[in-house]
Design a protein around this nucleic acid. Sequence first.
DNA 1: CGGACTTTTGAAGTAATTCAAGGGGAGTGG
DNA 2: CCACTCCCCTTGAATTACTTCAAAAGTCCG
Lengths: 231, 231
Amino acid sequence: MDDQSDLDMLGRTELFRGAPADLLRDIQRAAFRRRFAAGETVIRQGDPAATLYIVIAGRLRATQTTLDGQQVIMRYLGPGQIAGYAVLVDGETHPGAIVAVDDCHLIGWKGSYIGDLMCRHALVAMNAVRLIGARYLDVQVRLRELSTEKVERRLAHTILRLVAQAGRRTARGIEIAFPLSRQDLAEMSGTTLHTVSRTLSGWEERGLVDCGRRRVVVANAPLLEAIAEQE
Amino acid sequence: MDDQSDLDMLGRTELFRGAPADLLRDIQRAAFRRRFAAGETVIRQGDPAATLYIVIAGRLRATQTTLDGQQVIMRYLGPGQIAGYAVLVDGETHPGAIVAVDDCHLIGWKGSYIGDLMCRHALVAMNAVRLIGARYLDVQVRLRELSTEKVERRLAHTILRLVAQAGRRTARGIEIAFPLSRQDLAEMSGTTLHTVSRTLSGWEERGLVDCGRRRVVVANAPLLEAIAEQE
DNA sequence: CGGACTTTTGAAGTAATTCAAGGGGAGTGG
DNA sequence: CCACTCCCCTTGAATTACTTCAAAAGTCCG
């Protein structure tokens, strides 16, 4: 938690990558730290977009909930990623909620500080463009999958994406490194927890995955990729 | 087509809004003009991201096609909007195709010029952030709809969005101001042209809409909104 | 007026949801 | 340590919204 390691960390985040040391120092001075326990809400849907966070440790879930209470998981956020992008695009309010999945350690800034920073440093603004562009591309891919693929294939894609961003090698295979229920997978794949459960049971019989309570381990990634590519 | 009106036009686009006159003049000097006939391809999926266009007149369709040939319409682009956003986020290639729906008039720039512009003028970079942010939000909404709503409701939302961005008052109601087939609506709503046709027929009987060959007129917008909000 | 494209509509088929009930782990409190 | 309780997960059966298949009817344009 010393200053130098903090600076290194900031310099590796998607938003501040490439910034010179003195700028990073300035950014660090303007920041505040916050911790959230698993399950705590970081940002509520509809809140005014006043604060931007960067994840230091732990994992967040970004969701959107409809009027009738149905939830969609937009993405998970890990170390180095930003939470509260509405601040960057100067939206009035946060379009979704952000909740801690793990115990989390975040650092944050007032929105006005970030806006100012982007105005004065094109590098930060360009990083913001790239970062939002990457998310835009990602959600386009999901939209395409949801429009054109059947559930099993979508679920395979969903799990492979999670493995890519939070996979951890273990004896049994690659484990997704945070708790993840059937309901969560359903809300990411556009289906119901029942269908997810049935599909995973089928895969488990074939030795593709090894699941438990809020735990998913991919035992045979190539075969899962084959399902995703529908061969 | 005189210089001054061009400058005014550039100053009203989503990317160059708020730029001072001398910068606009510089931007104008670096631009080239191109015309495309209805049906012509402006950008092919997978092309290297070398050129950015802004629509002056006419309308473009941005799509993504899967390996097995299924197409999804990501959005329609009208006057003032940019085509080829990959250039902004410095992507390697264009993630989708762009085709002229109408006869179109575009102006374009080399990607390197735009990259340079964003570096030197934080205003342009911030406009880019806002613009991509708006598209990101838009596609998030569609993802949520696709995940949680049934076809009829999704189709209502799709049509209302098109009305908002390209609606034109006529005697019969609000007409969507460009040719739009049942297949197109299907590719925007995540369904088949058959289901779209049946749904529109139903609405037509109830006096909600008034459709023709590649033409959609909304006769009763409030009722269509009621369907979209599922009352 | 021929031919291509778009749209409509019926009928059959199916993937996935919904409904329903029960089973099992993990943590808590006695 | 055991029992209790809360989640989370599983699985069958019934239902349904939508797709797929198939054919025909419009509509526009050269």
